[in-house]
């Protein structure tokens, strides 16, 4: 296992210019080692997708991206388009939330899987078809021979997502980035897909970045979890720590908001209000408006730093102890 892992350093994304500029990712850093899984959680609009899209050079020019994205000692943000294309699909596999927009409706499943294998690995058409069949089998698609000739619209949502994963895995990537790949799927299909990725990771030692808006989904998969809010990392910790001793009021809110099977409560602890507008961010703590704690005079005026509050545990709040 000598896969390199993946890291983003001080990543910033600004969309648009001047007064209307939206600062959607603000100085995000995290890393994931080979064989490990990083969970990224946070509600919609918190900048999860923008972070990973920017790190893979997938944002078109009007987006201003700074910082770095390191894969095997190389900064992806400094590579030419050509070089990047050689890395994406080959060493970096991507799975998006909506497989319909990322699969080509005009190509058969076979073509979409074999394209990368032929291009990146120089396989013959025949050999590529064989690997495609094996891949479909590994991602749990019944009757793979028939499915190879199918078009995306002939597959169910769960099957399309499994095809996406087959494509992402086709060249044996060092890093798999999965952006809410199971959000639209049934729990049964989700369980199949989580298992599949775990199994594959055990065999190949790839690093995995798994994005979700639901902490429970990354619980059984991730080693470390990053919680994003308003374009920033507000907490980062090993998954067990995050669950047993969340330090940021937002993380505690997320944990309390989800109903848990077999543990009925009368009221869910909803987080009131809505996330901040990235075009008009508050001058103090980004969570100030919705925070039930607000336990420090600086909350309203100063942006808290991401500080170490425990072993490998960081939180961006002035009041990490106030439960």
């Amino acid at each position: 296992m000598n896969a390199p892992g993946f890291a983003v350093r001080d990543l910033t994304v600004v969309l648009g210019r001047g007064k209307r500029a939206a600062r959607v990712v603000r100085g995000v850093s995290w890393s994931v080692e080979a064989g490990a899984t990083l969970g990224v959680v946070g509600e919609s609009g918190s900048g999860k997708s923008m972070t990973v899209l920017a790190s893979a050079g997938l944002l078109p020019p009007p987006a201003a991206v700074t910082g770095s994205a390191l894969l095997g000692g190389r900064d992806l943000l400094k590579l030419s388009r050509r070089e990047l294309e050689g890395i994406r699909g080959r060493r970096l596999g991507f799975v998006f939330q909506d497989p319909m927009t990322s699969l080509n409706p005009l190509l058969t499943v076979e073509r979409q899987i074999t394209e990368g294998i032929e291009e990146h690995l120089g396989a013959t058409r025949r050999a590529a078809r064989d690997s495609a069949r094996v891949l479909l089998e590994t991602v749990g698609i019944p009757d793979p021979d028939r499915r190879l000739d199918a078009y995306p619209h002939q597959l169910s949502g769960g099957m399309r997502q499994r095809v996406m994963i087959a494509i992402a895995l086709s060249c044996g990537p060092d890093v798999l980035i999965a952006d809410e790949p199971t959000t639209a799927l049934d729990v049964t299909t989700q369980a199949q897909i989580l298992d599949l990725v775990r199994e594959r990771q055990e065999r190949t030692g790839m690093a995995v970045v798994w994005i979700s808006h639901d902490l429970a989904v990354v619980g059984g998969l991730a080693d470390d979890v990053v919680v994003m809010y308003g374009g920033q990392v507000v907490e980062q910790a090993p998954v067990e720590t995050l669950h047993s001793a969340p330090a940021h009021p937002y993380t505690r809110g997320l944990l309390g908001a989800r109903p848990v099977l077999g543990r009925r409560r009368d009221q869910l602890t909803a987080i009131p209000g809505t996330p901040p507008d990235p075009r008009a961010l508050p001058s103090g703590c980004v969570f100030f408006d919705r925070c039930p704690v607000k336990g420090d005079p600086r909350c309203e005026t100063q942006v808290p730093d991401l500080v170490e509050v425990g072993r490998r545990h960081f939180a961006r709040t002035f009041c990490p102890e106030d439960q």
């Binding site: 729990v187 049964t188 369980a191 429970a216 619980g219 059984g220 669950h243 944990l255 099977l261």
Partner: peptide, 14 residues
């Protein structure tokens, strides 16, 4: 089977 597919939020249990 449905219930068993729901992830438990406690990572240790899960």
């Amino acid at each position: 089977a449905l219930m068993s597919a729901v992830p438990d939020p406690d990572p240790a249990t899960e």
